[in-house]
Amino acid sequence: MPTETLLELADLCSGYGSTPVLQGIDLSVQRGEIVAVIGRNGVGKTTMMRCLIGQLRAWSGSIRFKGNEISSRPPEVRAHLGFGYIPQGREVFPRMTVEENLRVGEMIGARTDAKLYDIVYEFFPILAERRQQKAGTMSGGQQQQLAIGRAMIGNPGLLLLDEPSEGIQPSIVQDITRVMQRVNRELGTTILFVEQNLDVILALAHRCYVMDKGRIVAERSAEELQDREVAKRDLQI
């Protein structure tokens, strides 16, 4: 399979107010890959995700998606270009039903294939079961599945997952990990995720970047990731 760069960050800097957080991020993601960005709490992983989707302005550097510079585009445009964002803490719309939450993920102007709903409901049967339930009344794991399904309804080329395992019981984490693998394999969706949970990283990532103090400090190939101890050390940098 010929590799094609889907997402490329070069010297990306950003932060909150006048406090810099990202101090020059360089990374790239090939089409069809599952890439992890790992690191301790507070090294800037979530900041990078928010900068990628456009909730946070890039101070300098570039974000190229399918070869186009998008760092000055607003979030809704990036969503239309093919970003599917699953934020930390899920952020489902609590006073709307499961089905309505999924409908928010539909793109205005683009035709939404009814098949996408079938696929989402097939991947996450719990969502089909609870179609009419208010999202705010569901458990953390169910909300996480809803957040992923909601992003998938937009038929994205790239899923951005921010700490998918956070605050979710281990059995559900395993389910979600398996589904993400299927999404990648069966739909060909590229996935970039940030994570601290070693099991999820090892099970899901084809490749990973290690982040510390707002910079990428190491890159680990699939082979290196086979060694549990390496990844463990990376998480403790």
Partner: peptide
Amino acid sequence: RATMQNPAMARALG
């Protein structure tokens, strides 16, 4: 309604 409940998230979904 999505915008009312969480405008930043709604925007990120397009």
